[in-house]
Design a binder for these strands. Structure first.
Length: 422
RNA sequence: GGUGCGAUGGCGAAGUGGCUCAACGCUGCGGUUUGCAAAACCGCCAUUCGCGGGUUCGAAUCCCGCUCGCACCUCCA
């Protein structure tokens, strides 16, 4: 097992990775919401999760990696009578909310397949399959005195959890009025308090609603990750990943729920890893429906989705990526060239050598590549090492063949198969 | 208002004190090859790392100040 260093959002520095139990790593990734198609920005988080998963495995760990699917609708923010996004989608498309969830879940899985992400590596859990667990957790929090009831739901009292600001470094006083916290009409005690259970609106039948000790309703949107991760991975997990936007609200709330319901002082998560955003050149990557770039848009331009994956690997995951068609073209050129070069290498060096009988020089490339990946998943550096290897005339094609296939176990660029268009 | 991130060649991007007077890829340019072209191959393309100071034998890398840009806090990852 090599030495892995990960940048931890909690503490904001690169730490040596030490798993909770020997040889086994528990990972949780915040997954998609399934009332719309994923745009390519969403997908960045899952390519990252995939690379992380690969790297852990290459380092000899057994990885148990869970991703949730948010199929419960939650209220559209601002106004009180805001519609639920699932229900809204249902209305829009004339399908039941369950059909909506299924439709977009399948579309999401297709995107993963296109990106060479084997979905079977992960344990997928749907929020609607874990309603009893979510209710249990809310009950536990209630028993410990962390909750209170208002007209529209059961809320978590964040003032009772002193470490609340730890992850995001939130200045509660500084939170501006008029933003999400402004709805003082719903009797929230603190600006940062959030719903654990929401009551169904009176005189209205929702398509998704469940009975609970507090009345008919549906879970708050943070509780699903806390309770599902506990159900599948246990109370303590090694690594939790997600988009950078989840830090201040969602992950902060997750920590509060999970740790408040544990014994004092126990950490819910040891390493928090956050993927930066991909932003479009001109238009902002759209948040809700509307126009946004799908993987399909890339395919329609006859560009391989794996070229998009290559583009993602060109930049470090913690760095913002500005998407443009120019940069995707550059990535596509590089990726297609890589495939060609690799094919030529395979033809000249058909039989491979074993990884432990590499020449000294070839082994240097192996180590340089591993070091790059193990240093907080520096894929950009790793790609550079791969190119240097390809261009090195002193290494035999047999060894190159061996090494590139090995590298691709980390990178997942599907270099060994023929499904790529050339 | 709060929080966080960033500024490196035409573009993307690595590099956190000496092995980098700056990797790797894309583009471009010159050449070899070719009937021409494409492809392939060979070669070239930042004395410089936003600006101004400072620390040091030595800084893109550390410190101070400044300028500019971006993101999140509105259920986008």
């Amino acid at each position: 097992m090599g030495k892995l260093y990960f940048y931890n959002t909690l503490g904001r520095e690169k730490d040596l990775f030490m798993p909770l139990s020997n040889g086994k790593v528990l990972v949780y990734t915040c997954g998609p919401t399934v009332y719309h198609y994923a745009h390519i920005g969403n997908l960045r988080a899952f390519v990252f999760a995939d690379i992380l998963n690969n790297t852990l495995k290459q380092n000899g760990y057994t990885v148990k990696h869970q991703i949730n699917i948010t199929d419960v609708g939650h209220l559209v923010s601002d106004d009180d009578d805001g519609e639920d996004k699932m229900e809204k989608g249902s209305l829009r498309e004339g399908k039941s909310v369950w059909e909506i969830a299924e439709l977009y879940t399948q579309a999401f899985f297709e995107d993963l397949l296109d990106l060479n992400i084997d979905k079977d590596k992960f344990i997928w859990t749907k929020a609607t399959d874990y309603i009893p667990e979510q209710i249990e957790m809310v009950k536990a929090l209630e028993e410990k005195g962390y909750t209170y009831k208002t007209e529209d739901g059961i809320y978590f009292d964040t003032s009772k959890f002193p470490k609340y600001t730890e992850l995001a470094n939130i200045d509660i006083e500084g939170l501006q009025k008029g933003k999400r916290i402004a709805d003082d009409k719903n009797e929230k005690r603190n600006k940062t308090d959030f719903a654990l259970w929401k009551f169904s609106p009176k005189n209205e039948k929702r398509q998704m609603e469940w009975d609970s000790p507090w009345g008919i309703g549906f879970p708050g949107w943070h509780i699903e990750c806390s309770s599902m991760s506990r159900a599948v991975l246990g109370e303590h997990i090694d690594i939790h990943t997600g988009g950078i936007d989840l830090i201040p609200v969602h992950h902060t709330n997750e920590i509060a729920q999970s740790e408040a319901s544990l014994e004092d002082g126990h950490r819910f998560v040891n390493y928090w890893m956050h993927v930066n955003f991909l932003n479009a050149d001109k238009e902002k990557m759209s948040k809700s429906s509307g126009d946004f770039l799908r993987l399909l848009s890339i395919k329609e331009k006859n560009i391989s989705p794996l070229s998009y994956r290559y583009l993602l690997l060109m930049t470090h995951y913690r760095k913002e990526l500005k998407f443009s068609w120019e940069s995707l073209d550059a990535a596509d050129n590089a990726y297609q060239k890589l495939i060609k070069k690799f094919k030529a290498i395979v033809e000249n060096g058909k039989e491979r050598v074993s990884l432990n009988e590499l020449s000294f020089e070839a082994n240097n490339y192996k180590e340089a590549f591993e070091n790059a990946m193990n240093d907080d998943l520096n894929t950009s550096m790793a790609l550079a090492k791969m190119w240097s290897l390809i261009n090195d005339k002193n290494i035999s094609d047999k060894e190159k063949h061996t090494l590139i296939l090995y590298f691709d176990k980390y990178l997942g660029l599907n270099l060994s198969h023929e499904k790529n268009k050339v």
